[in-house]
């Protein structure tokens, strides 16, 4: 009798969690379904790179994507230092494998918009991604923010805002935060010009290992077909 009562109590306690887990799994599936409408796209926009040791202009970039996970950012006219992890702006990378466990981590707000926080744990123990946290706008079924921790490449964060292409789950603006290595070259190699009057670098300024790339998309060309050559 005691065992039966205990079992009933346990069932009552655990049932809401199981139901929530089902809820977030369904939510993630809906987001995934939205993203998967897009087989390929070409997007043009501007990229602002903000890294303590890089002084670069705003770049006109073209982003190419093709399913399942090919993504390339190109600056057709000039030079762009594209952060390595920007491939993660393709959310298919996170969701398309399907082999993960979705856990409900409550609710929060991103830019004033209420979101459901979902943690994705990959089933594959050897996967590079250790943990992804998604902040999902349940009303529009899009991801507003994602935080990814990788095994070898540090952690990075994406923040996205949506407008015209929300029906495809494609953002109009992406802010990508990432880790960089410390930059230092020997002065004997660079022969810097320094007459002593220059404002000295603030201590540790270039040791700031956080970088930021802000991509503002002007337009997307969706599902028009894309050759594999552009990703070479």
């Amino acid at each position: 009798m005691k065992k039966t009562i205990l079992a009933i109590i346990m069932l009552c306690l655990l049932t809401p969690f199981v139901l929530y887990a089902q809820d977030v799994s369904q939510l993630v599936e809906k987001v995934k379904a939205k993203i998967e409408q897009v087989k390929d796209y070409t997007a043009s926009g501007k990229m602002k790179t903000n890294v303590s040791f890089l002084k670069v202009p705003v770049a006109n970039v073209v982003i190419y994507f093709k399913k399942p996970n090919q993504l390339k950012i190109k600056n057709e006219k000039g030079i762009s230092f594209v952060p390595k992890g920007t491939v993660s702006i393709n959310l298919n990378n996170v969701l398309s494998s399907g082999s993960y466990t979705a856990l409900d981590a409550g609710v929060d707000k991103v830019a004033g918009i209420p979101v459901r926080v979902v943690k994705l744990l990959p089933s594959d123990e050897n996967a590079d991604v250790v943990l992804s946290t998604l902040y999902i706008d349940e009303a529009r079924q899009v991801i507003l923010r994602s935080r990814t921790t990788t095994r070898d490449n540090g952690s990075y964060e994406l923040e996205m805002s949506y407008a015209k292409y929300v029906s495809f789950g494609l953002p109009d603006k992406i802010i990508f935060s990432f880790n960089t290595k410390e930059y230092k070259l020997p002065k004997g190699m660079t022969f810097d010009f320094d007459d002593g009057s220059a404002v000295k670098q603030e201590a540790g300024k270039t040791k700031n290992k956080k970088g930021r790339a802000e991509i503002t998309i002007n337009s997307y060309s969706i599902n028009k077909g894309l050759a594999d050559d552009v990703f070479k």
Binding site: S52, F53, L54, K55, V56, P57, G78, I79, F81, Y183, K184, L185, P186, K187, M189, T190, D192, Q201, T206
Partner: peptide, 15 residues
């Protein structure tokens, strides 16, 4: 093309 100038503590890119 653009010029990339490497200094000891930073890198400059000129269009």
């Amino acid at each position: 093309g653009d010029v990339v100038v490497a200094k000891s503590m930073e890198m400059h890119q000129i269009e």
